[in-house]
Amino acid sequence: MKILLIAGGWSSEREVSLNGGRGMAEALRARGHSVTFFDLLTDFGQLLDQARQHDFALINLHGAPGEDGLVQALLERVGCPYQGSGPAGSFLALHKAAAKQVFRHAGLPTADWEFLPAPPPQDWQPRLSYPLFVKSNTGGSSLRLGRARNRAELDAVLAEIFAAGEEALIESELSGREVTCGILGEEALPPVLIEPVAGDFFDYESKYARGGAREICPAPLSPELTAQVQKLALAAHRALGLTGYSRADFIVGKDQSLTLLEVNTLPGMTATSLVPQEAQVIGLDFGQLLERLMELGLQRHKG
């Protein structure tokens, strides 16, 4: 198949996207596909022309553009099939405050939050109690993410987010273990337990530094808790109107309660990323997983 592999872009996660895209291209070529590596940053103006010349577009972008649905909307204009979710579901999932409204409306457990689209007035006070987690509302890879135990720490993290031209989301801190669960088609994959080595939570360093975290798949959870994680991951996928695949992140409390953090529509895609690890457990190697994503994308396009 003639594949347009779209990577790079201009978000803060550009390098993560490029590195993953190179590995994807190598795996696809090893399986006999013709791959054009397309850097969205340098070649954006040629996207539609290139899409018309390929059988399928495989998107490996993180943040915006990519997870915001822009590239998907453009590809649809020229009838080029692609993997994963369409523009609407992609944007809802990327916008954390919007996604949390969808989760709450669907009866899914998510932490209380406060959305700050712009710097608040000087007399503003958070309505949630410290300690707080503060993150970019549309960011990923745990960039511009921090814990605030007091107002000075809160102001410092908010200043970094607003200086980058982004919106902020504040949540109550949740204690417990982080578990993530992928969806492939309409099947929930075996969850992964994430144990940061260098810090207290899964920050950028934990995600991408060698040895920064232990990722245990299948997660050592009871069969009952595993089933509940998978059920909620699929429910979140459906609530957002997603297709193809996604990955939902959770906190497992000491009482074995589950709280949904967010859903990623274009999860990391290297051979050792979380969703590929889960797929490996059910017998799909990295190349086979990529081909399964393309198969699902073609089915969606035809439907």
Rank of each mutant, 00 (worst) to 15 (best):
Q280I: 02
S142K: 11
G21F: 13
G287W: 04
L184H: 06
A148K: 01
E26I: 15
A88N: 11
R214Y: 04
E166W: 02
G21A: 15
T36I: 11
R214C: 06
A279L: 02
P131D: 06
P131G: 09
L116A: 10
G287M: 10
K302R: 15
R22F: 08
L128M: 09
L274Y: 01
A64T: 15
F115Q: 02
A27V: 10
L5H: 07
K2R: 15
L225E: 07
L145V: 15
F202I: 06
G8M: 00
P191F: 01
F38K: 04
T226A: 09
L47E: 02
R300L: 04
F44P: 00
P117M: 10
L266K: 08
E167N: 06
T243V: 10
N137T: 09
G139D: 08
E13D: 13
A164N: 14
R77E: 14
L41Y: 03
P126C: 10
A271D: 09
T272H: 14
G199H: 15
G86K: 07
L174K: 08
L225C: 08
R149E: 15
T180C: 10
S246H: 01
R31W: 05
S129H: 09
Q83R: 03
V35E: 10
A271E: 11
I59M: 13
I216F: 09
K100M: 14
G45M: 00
G211W: 14
L92M: 14
F202P: 00
P218V: 05
L284W: 12
L48R: 07
A168G: 06
E186F: 05
A271L: 09
D255H: 07
G182R: 03
D123Y: 01
L261Q: 03
V102N: 11
A99R: 13
A57D: 11
L193C: 02
L189G: 12
S175M: 12
C181Q: 10
G8I: 00
G20F: 04
E195W: 04
A97Q: 13
R127S: 10
P276Y: 04
S257H: 03
V275T: 15
E167A: 15
A93P: 11
D285H: 12
L240Y: 03
V179M: 08
L5A: 06
I170A: 03
A236K: 07
L221T: 07
A30E: 09
A235I: 06
K231S: 14
P196D: 07
E26A: 14
L290I: 09
R14E: 12
Q228W: 04
H301I: 06
V16C: 03
E67R: 12
R77T: 15
E114Q: 14
S136K: 06
D123S: 08
R292E: 15
A168I: 02
F250K: 05
F115D: 03
